[in-house]
Amino acid sequence: MTVTLPNVLTILRLVAAPAIAVMFLYFNRPWADWFALVLFVSAAITDWIDGYLARSWKQETKLGAMLDPIADKAMVVIALMVIVGYSSMSPWLVLPATFILFREVFVSGLREYLGDVAGTLKVTKLAKWKTTAQMVAIACLFAQGVFEHYFGMSVFGMDNAMVLDILQGREEDVLGLWWKMEGMIWAGRLGLWLLWLAAALTVLTGIDYFAKALPHLKERD
């Protein structure tokens, strides 16, 4: 096993995946949301860094090639599980998450069946865009949780009339309710839009991968 800096970063990203869920077990919100957001964004950044370093330093290894997609899938699957689990189970969130999770399980099973042949099926640019859309969408949805809980903490003890007066400018917004609410709304919208885009790209790349794998599946019949 070759231990290189890109491989170390990939392993750290793999370890960070379950740590996202652990944050919600040991910390109250919004701290759990904050820690999960920082962990996820840091892992997404190292995903780009370790790939760049491996190519630039010519340190691409079999270990890295094996662990990199596993780390990516683990981050996305666990993060989506946490987000859906702490959401209101809105179908607008559950449906794209289901498409993404189904595709990841399907392609992983297909890769396992194909064995060494799977390595010849190269990652497309569309698949890279899919991963980027997933990562940004999930980061936005974690950010929505941060804004939502700060807003909830700020309005605690206020009645609806007082909150409405502040948001509509009839009362001074000392606690910053307006920007917290706007942050919550727009982070949620952007996250949901990007999650649906990621789901669409996920389905397309899944179909593309299956089409490329089909000749190899026929050879095995």
Rank of each mutant, 00 (worst) to 15 (best):
L67S: 07
V123W: 00
G157V: 10
D159C: 06
D50A: 10
M153H: 06
T120R: 11
K180T: 08
W57Y: 09
T120F: 04
A118Y: 02
G109V: 02
L9M: 12
L190G: 07
L192A: 09
T10N: 03
R170K: 15
M135T: 14
T202M: 06
L204S: 13
N7L: 15
R55F: 04
N28W: 01
Y86R: 14
A137G: 09
A79I: 11
G119S: 10
L164R: 10
K218C: 02
M158A: 05
V41G: 04
N7K: 12
G169L: 09
D50F: 05
P18W: 07
G115P: 05
S108E: 08
D208C: 06
T61V: 12
D159L: 08
A139R: 09
L95G: 00
A21M: 11
L204T: 06
A71D: 03
G191N: 01
F99A: 12
G191L: 08
G119P: 07
M66Q: 05
V107E: 03
V77L: 11
L192D: 00
R189F: 10
W34I: 15
E104T: 13
K130Q: 11
D50V: 14
L114V: 09
W129S: 10
M153I: 10
P96M: 11
T10E: 03
A65P: 03
L197G: 11
A213S: 15
V82T: 11
L95D: 00
I207V: 13
E172C: 01
L67I: 08
V76D: 00
V163W: 04
S42E: 06
F24A: 00
V8F: 08
A97N: 01
A211K: 14
N7P: 03
L204F: 15
Y209F: 13
G115Q: 07
G169Y: 05
K130M: 07
